[in-house]
């Protein structure tokens, strides 16, 4: 049986500042975005738009990108089902076949 998982990245999750609010910039301002970009890039991330093009996301290459995996527990992010390799990016946007923690294949979609 194949599971279908659908997710919507909550705004808080998309907010690159969540969990580390040291900025004085007001949310929704350009300064806020630029601070978020700087923080993202400082940790090796790539700051860009999400699928809908309206939310900025900090895309990070995990240390285990493209390494072999057999379940989700083997990866920082998702374990891709066809190649059995850890996803090259976190968060993983769009629809992908992934392996769950129990090794079951599921279609994972996230916007």
């Amino acid at each position: 049986m194949r599971l279908v998982l659908v997710g919507l990245l909550a705004l808080a999750a998309c907010n690159p500042l969540s969990g580390s609010r040291t900025s004085e910039a007001e949310e929704g301002t350009q300064a806020f975005v630029e601070q978020a970009r700087a923080r993202c890039e400082a940790r090796g991330g790539n700051f860009g738009s999400g699928s809908a093009g309206v939310v900025n996301i900090c895309y990070v290459t995990p240390k285990d990108a493209n390494q072999s995996c057999s379940t989700a527990t083997d990866c920082e992010g998702q374990c891709l089902a066809r190649s059995r390799t850890c996803a090259p990016v976190i968060p993983l946007i769009g629809c992908h076949e992934v392996l769950l923690e129990n090794g079951q294949v599921a279609e994972f979609c996230q916007d």
Binding site: G48, S49, G50, S51, G53, Y59, A87, P88, V89, L92, I93, G94, H96
Partner: peptide
């Protein structure tokens, strides 16, 4: 080009 951007971001 916009679709390409999305596909690259999705890791596909």
């Amino acid at each position: 080009l916009e679709a390409m951007t999305r596909l690259q971001r999705e890791g596909k």
